[in-house]
Nucleic acid binder design. Sequence first.
DNA 1: TGTATGACCCCAA
DNA 2: GTTGGGGCCATAC
Length: 103
Amino acid sequence: MSAPDLNFLFIQVVGSIPKGRVSTYGQIAALAGYPGYARQVGATLKNLPKDTELPWFRVLNAQGRISFPENSKSYLKQKAMLQGEGVEFRGDRISLKEYGWRV
DNA sequence: TGTATGACCCCAA
DNA sequence: GTTGGGGCCATAC
């Protein structure tokens, strides 16, 4: 009873990220009640259907960067989506003010 | 059963 | 600021 539960929890938390804000994998796991499960959050997002409504693009790593290689298609897509929501990039990184949100 | 891998995190040099 | 090593949990082979 772990895999479905964790996926469900992580999906809920990711879905609660407001537009124009971003969070980190570790933060997602901690908010779900499972600190240290950052990698599992990544596994959950990877398993998402391509037509999902979940704002997976609002999840970045602890360095504030997109967890994809720059030449990757997903990287450019995610960056474009975030910029479209008003998230400003400082090179490959984002502004720290975009972090976190209040529930 | 054991090893390798992954959309990760943290600390030290 | 960057780089390297260790730690972390679950899944795949």
